[in-house]
Amino acid sequence: MPGEAVTRPSQVLSDDTLLEMYRLMLLSRRLDERAWALHRQGRVQFHVSAMGHEATQVGAAFAINRGVDYVVPYYRDLAMAIALGCSALDFMLGLFARRDDPWSAGRQMPCHFSDRDRHIISGSSTVATQVPQAAGLAFAVRYRQRAGLVDPQDETQPRLALTSLGEGSTNQGEWHEGMNWAGVQCLPLVCLVENNRYAISVPQTEQMAIPSVATRAAGYGAQGESVDGNDVLAVYDAMHAAVQRAYRGEGPSLVEAHTYRLTPHTSDDDDRSYRSREEVAAAGEVEPLLRYRSVLLERGLLTPKMVDDLEAQARARVDEAQRAAEAAPEPAPQEADSPVLAPLPEGLA
């Protein structure tokens, strides 16, 4: 309605941005599906999937200053990494554990993202370890601002740290200790909890005595909010509020995005022992990619023809990345014994 106040930040996203979000979700999904197929064919050793989490991750990434703000993701964040500018080839090089895998040179499992230029911090497989580190990055942001080393308004500098993890991982001490630190020091930290209701096989009801992880925020003086994690624009809105709060110096937030993983935990898991096929099928009905596609079709931003074209483009990128990664060289075996210590800077050695 003309004159009506904008109530949702996502309402002012440009058509291009809305379509870009779709393209990235789609690319992540198709990469993910290809990885499962390659695993079934015995061509890759392992895959950990983001399928079902794409709206959560892309919505979150778009709410920060992508490539500038610090991001400390976890193993399930393929769509987030793609939304932060990592390429299909980056992913495939890691999947095939090639020498030129930019995240770890074939040392870590796939999807252990790391990109210095994009301010994506290398993560381990150990859950929740990234949370105090993210608090430390947020501390550094604030330290530099208070020391007068950077202008708090300068958008070329990191102004917050975003970290993410699963709901099960919020039972770890590191999560609590990191959140408490961020809270007591009022640090610009945003913690995204991707709540897919299971930690491998153990349901949330056996992980914590509360239905919503967001209520845990209160214990740390953080702002907590739950959102439909299958609705990319709703995630964007919730994250936008949290991000702006961080930029304004109002302290940490916890955004809990309710979603569902459409696949087993990893390629090593079989989820049939702990999730009914009915439950999984029902989740497929409300999964985020199809859902966002209908929204865009309804708004007239997408047409059936565009849907097909974008599919073809995504598929071509996946094909090309796979081809290039498969043809890429393996690391020399003796690179296992690469340095564990950084060399001393010039002039010190």
Partner: peptide, 23 residues
């Protein structure tokens, strides 16, 4: 002064070091 958390002291230190401070 830090909160009473060794895991936090080191974890926050790591984050600050990654951001090129010298904790």
């Amino acid at each position: 002064d830090s909160p009473l958390t060794e895991m936090g002291i080191v974890g926050v230190g790591i984050g600050a070091a990654l951001a090129d401070l010298r904790p």
